[in-house]
């Protein structure tokens, strides 16, 4: 007690920066920051270590092999099909979801009467609250049979594009269906984030366009979309992150196979997360390491995508609306 007293008095005097409250708080926040870094590092080290163990025993090229048989002797497995399926289904999802989400967000923020905008925003929030397994079941039971017809139509009229050429029969448990399902699943998050950004467009920017004689669409084009640009990109990246990592819905809908096919309507293919979920329980220790290696690749892809998004946002920083 006696030794602490001078400290406290000192802290009330010249060195006001070392009050106990300040010290505790800065210690806590610094501790939280360090903990985060330690956890991240621990995950990265764990993934890398197990992945290296598995990949070094792989008898074929890990990146180009169309097969997954880590239990064989020698073990043969590769991520080519998974990487292709993951990227393709996510790209389809983005192509569908981003324009629709921007449309919904604009409708809620700028077109809908207030009485309609609030309930609509609430419904979009609800969509985000549905668990992914439910989406998966809905996709498998409802969406797949309905998409059979669309698939046939696409095959008939757009078959010449190769992408929509359906070379084998079978139900629509394909990457295209997965892409559509993922689009529905990532729609709410993209919509919500872009809507928030659109609502934050300063009134003076919109009035600037209005006063020049801009129509509502022209106001959106001149003021709202440019201001929301970085927000749209961030929102899309959030959605893409979810699409890349989505597991259950894909696992339920897709009939997986280790075939890499550019015919998106053919059943088969696979994604990283779906493959891990499907194989993890029956895999031996070595097989699990192989799955972890594939997980590491997904992690790297996600990092690259995020980095690219940050680069795009930062490239025209001097033009960003936030500066004004």
């Amino acid at each position: 007690m006696a030794t602490t007293t001078p400290d406290i008095q000192g802290s009330r005097g010249a060195k006001s920066a070392t009050r106990p409250g300040d010290r505790i708080f800065s210690g806590l926040s610094r501790g939280s920051g360090i903990t985060l870094l330690v956890i991240m590092a621990a995950i990265a080290v764990f993934l890398t270590y197990r992945a290296v163990l598995a990949v070094s025993d792989d008898s074929t090229n890990f990146f180009t092999t169309f097969e997954w048989n880590p239990a064989g002797s020698p073990p043969v497995f590769g991520i080519a099909v998974l990487a292709f399926g993951t990227v393709v289904s996510s790209v389809i999802a983005m192509l569908i979801a981003v324009p629709v989400a921007i449309g919904i967000a604009l409708f809620i923020s700028h077109y809908a009467p207030r009485k309609l905008a609030k309930p609509l925003a609430y419904v979009v929030d609800l969509l985000a609250a549905v668990p992914s397994i439910i989406y998966g079941l809905w996709g498998a039971i409802f969406l797949v049979p309905y998409l059979d017809g669309l698939n046939k139509w696409l095959d008939q009229y757009l078959g010449w594009t190769y992408v929509f050429d359906k070379s084998s029969d079978g139900v629509a448990r394909n990457l295209f269906t997965v892409g559509i399902l993922l689009a529905i699943m990532i729609l709410p998050i993209i919509t919500n984030v872009t809507r928030e950004v659109f609502l934050q467009v300063p009134k003076m920017h919109e009035e600037a366009a209005l006063a020049l004689g801009a129509t509502r669409w022209e106001v959106i084009r001149m003021s709202v979309l440019p201001f929301g640009r970085s927000g749209i990109i961030s929102a899309s990246m959030l959605g893409l992150g979810r699409a890349l990592g989505e597991t259950m819905a894909v696992a339920v809908v897709l009939s997986p196979s280790f075939v890499l096919s550019g015919h998106l309507l053919d059943p088969g293919g696979g994604t990283f997360a779906q493959n891990i979920a499907a194989k993890f329980n029956e895999a031996n220790e070595y097989g699990r390491d192989a799955l972890i290696a594939s997980g590491l690749v997904l992690f790297v892809i996600t990092l690259l995508v995020n980095g690219a998004a940050r680069w795009i946002i930062g490239r025209r920083k001097e033009y960003s609306g936030a500066a004004a």
Binding site: L210, A214, S320
Partner: peptide, 21 residues
């Protein structure tokens, strides 16, 4: 009203150039 605003120009209290242009 859009046509009206094309013939009656306006300057606002706070300068509001389009920040992205």
């Amino acid at each position: 009203p859009v046509a009206v605003r094309r013939t009656v120009g306006m300057v606002f209290q706070r300068p509001n150039p389009f920040p992205t242009m």
